[in-house]
């Protein structure tokens, strides 16, 4: 049994051209056909041991909310899609801001020394809030450095201005822009190899106007392209999502938007809600490391 030509990732017109001249199997294609090796090349095989060693080396994005890091098996894993969902005011955006900053901390204190990309869809990137949080984190960092840096005080490796510089903000207003931005990032990331985190806040706004199957397709395309990049450049993907009402025949209940097909595509889902002014509750709804777990925590105000 031979591999058929139409299984190759070729544009429709090229496939038709090959088919009309009766090239049906890949083995019949001339080796001189451009990129044939590339087209037929399967991804590399790794043993589970190799995968494990790589994962241990690359680390993960720590939230610095200890109980949350613990239930996630160390932090938000690189290469995976993690969703924070919750009602407005449940701390989704705030935790995203915090992560954009904490990912930049030096590795010796648990950061990844990386840059962050923040893709906003509601035009609500509150730079003054980011700056405030950055200041708070820097205050803590200075204290921490004094205690733990074994005499290397005053390294000046990080400051508020630098933090603000290393967050790239992109605003998108619809799903075509969102898909295009991923194509754009492909080249952009080559000049910014230290990006460790990409945030989409929120993913549901641009997808909302689409109907059922198209919405699934676009969401899958977007996450597929992003994850492909994430594998190459080693960054974590964080998206936020709203809560909506779902109806059964007799009752209704609250659930994160975009439905089950979209939910399947995610690697991790964390539900957030606000308990009191600065106390939040997080429920780990989907994760390989822990079954449904509830934790309470406070964010840096």
């Amino acid at each position: 049994m031979h591999q058929p030509v139409h299984s190759l990732s070729l544009p429709e017109c090229k496939l038709r051209e090959l088919q009309t001249s009766e090239f049906n199997y890949c083995k019949d294609l001339d080796a001189s056909m451009p990129y044939l090796d590339q087209l037929m090349k399967p991804p590399v095989t790794k043993t589970a041991l190799e995968v494990y060693n790589e994962e241990c080396q690359q680390g993960c994005v720590r939230t610095f909310v200890e109980p949350l890091d613990n239930v996630l098996g160390g932090g938000i894993p690189l290469g995976e899609v993690t969703e924070f969902c919750g009602e407005p005011g449940s701390g989704k955006t705030q935790i995203c801001f915090q992560l954009c900053i904490s990912v930049q901390l030096p590795t010796w204190c648990g950061g990844l020394n990386g840059e962050a990309v923040y893709i906003g869809t509601n035009c609500d990137f509150a730079s003054h809030r980011v700056k405030e949080i950055a200041k708070r984190i820097m205050d803590r960092y200075v204290l921490f450095e004094a205690k733990h840096s074994f005499g290397n005080i005053g390294l000046n490796e990080i400051n508020v201005e630098l933090i603000m510089e290393r967050i790239s903000y992109i605003n998108v207003s619809d799903y075509t822009q969102m898909l295009l931005i991923v194509t754009y990032l492909k080249d952009w990331l080559h000049d910014h190899p230290t990006v460790k985190l990409i945030v989409i806040d929120s993913i549901c706004a641009p997808l909302k106007p689409l109907d059922g199957s198209q919405r699934t397709t676009i969401a899958y395309q977007l996450l597929q392209d992003l994850q492909k990049l994430a594998k190459e450049h080693n960054f974590a993907i964080i998206v936020t999502n709203n809560i909506t009402t779902r109806f059964t025949c007799s009752s209704s209940y609250l659930a994160p938007s975009l439905g089950d097909n979209y939910y399947h595509r995610l690697n991790n889902r964390i539900y957030l809600c606000k308990k009191s002014s600065n106390v939040f509750k997080a429920v780990l709804l989907k994760s390989l490391f822990n079954s449904q777990t509830e934790i309470e925590f406070s964010l840096i105000s």
Binding site: A48, L49, V51, Y52, N53, E54, E55, C56, G73, G74, P77, G79, E80, V81, L223, Q227, A230, K231, R265, N267, L288, F289
Partner: peptide, 9 residues
């Protein structure tokens, strides 16, 4: 979808 986790295994 990058679900395989060596650390989990």
């Amino acid at each position: 979808k990058n679900d395989f986790s060596g650390r989990k295994l």
